[in-house]
């Protein structure tokens, strides 16, 4: 059995959490003081997810790049693939905040800065 220890990030309390995992299944979650935290802790251990932000080059804009983010969190272990995908993008002005500039595995890549 493995015990994962980490700090919860759901709220500023930062509870110290312990999650026991045996044969790939969560056996116990200790240290949380709220249900949101417990839910996040399980997710963290079974399929950690992150919002990813980066910049993409853009032509003919006021600045050479546009900042982007994934519209929803993606699996942490697939982030390198997503970054490879983003490395191939090149945009053309105009781009508006909120525009979907690309899509990856069903996840929209959204501009957070205009060009």
């Amino acid at each position: 059995m493995t015990t994962y220890r980490f700090t919860c990030i759901v709220c500023p309390l930062g509870c110290s959490i312990e999650v026991d995992v045996e044969k790939g299944r969560v056996k116990d979650v200790k240290g949380c003081t709220c249900p949101r935290g417990a839910e996040w802790a399980v997710q963290e251990v079974t399929n950690p997810q992150r919002i990813v932000m980066s910049v993409v080059p853009v032509d003919n804009g006021a600045l050479p790049t546009v900042s982007v983010k994934t519209e929803k969190p993606v699996s942490k272990d697939r982030i390198p693939e997503l970054m490879e995908f983003l490395a191939e993008l090149r945009l053309e002005a105009p781009v508006n905040i909120g525009d979907t500039v690309a899509e990856w595995e069903g996840v929209k890549i959204v501009a957070t800065r205009g060009a």
Partner: peptide, 8 residues
Amino acid sequence: GDVKVLLR
């Protein structure tokens, strides 16, 4: 290089 040079 440019910001994506290492990824490429």
